[in-house]
């Protein structure tokens, strides 16, 4: 009984409620996703072939992003340094919202993936990591004779 009280559906309901309230009050979620874990913001999706992770990490040299998989956990880490204001004494910073410094985000992967076959690509400031599922775990169609 206790188990069902904390079922996934409750969290889904809460999440839905939160999003509805944001919509009702016209609050746009921060692109940095501060409330939900920080920089970079992450989206995760599943397909029958692979697990897809999208990390929104703009303005960084791809070689400065580390992507590691260890014991079923995907770790995305690195450092983002921003442009310093130019113009010396006469310069002023009016708005300072963009993330700078070291970052690290973690995604736990399902058991049926093959970490050795993972690939990562960086384009337009989005890092896309694909971790394929093991051949045996993919859905298979069985012909009826």
């Amino acid at each position: 009984m206790v188990g069902s009280l904390f079922s996934r559906d409750l969290f889904r309901e809460l999440d839905l409620l939160q999003r509805e309230m944001q919509g009702a009050f016209g609050i746009s979620p921060s692109i940095r996703g501060i409330a939900r874990g920080g920089f970079p913001a992450l989206n995760v999706g599943n397909s029958p072939q692979a697990v897809h992770v999208y990390a929104f990490v703009p303005g960084i040299d791809p070689s400065a992003i580390q992507v590691e998989i260890e014991k079923g956990v995907l770790v995305i880490s690195g450092e983002r340094s921003l442009e310093a204001p130019t113009g010396g004494e006469r310069s002023a910073v009016h708005i300072d919202e963009r993330f700078s410094g070291r970052f690290r985000r973690v995604v736990s992967l399902p058991d049926d993936v093959d970490p050795a076959a993972a690939t990562a690509a960086y384009r337009d400031g989005v890092l896309q990591v694909q971790v394929p599922r093991r051949e045996a775990a993919r859905p298979q169609r069985i012909n009826v004779q």
Binding site: S30, I31, P40, P58, G87, R90, A92, V93, R98, V126
Partner: peptide, 23 residues
């Protein structure tokens, strides 16, 4: 979405940086 921005001003003008990943 509201992109995060930085705005710097110097003697000759203003520089704005906006994070727009995926665009």
């Amino acid at each position: 979405l509201v992109p995060a921005v930085n705005v710097h001003e110097d003697a000759s003008g203003i520089t704005l940086y906006a994070d727009l990943p995926g665009v």
